[in-house]
């Protein structure tokens, strides 16, 4: 198999993984109240912050973009 095909295969696999997660998240969101959604997102943002710190990613806040 050519390298290009391998890359495309890995990309499709990656997209499929994420699509699965999105579908699960969709079901989860459908069952949540507004407050639970907000809490879920805050937790997500907190986990993101840990990831950002771990990898040393550059960040920008919503205020800095504007």
């Amino acid at each position: 198999m050519e390298e290009k095909d391998l890359i495309e295969q890995s990309i499709e696999k990656r997209k499929a993984e994420i699509q699965d997660f999105k579908q699960q998240q969709e079901l989860l969101f459908e069952s949540m109240t507004e407050d639970e959604k907000i809490e879920y997102l805050v937790n997500t943002y907190t986990n993101n912050s840990k990831l950002i710190k771990k990898y040393g990613f550059s960040t920008i806040s919503e205020d800095e973009v504007k």
Binding site: I38, V42, T46, N48, G56, F57, S58, T59, E62
Partner: peptide, 22 residues
């Protein structure tokens, strides 16, 4: 890729940002 070409949008006020996003 993220390190070279991206910046992560990290909410300043997580609670307020989440509320507006929802």
């Amino acid at each position: 890729f993220i390190k070279k070409y991206c910046v992560i949008l990290e909410p300043k006020d997580k609670q307020a940002f989440a509320k507006e996003a929802v």
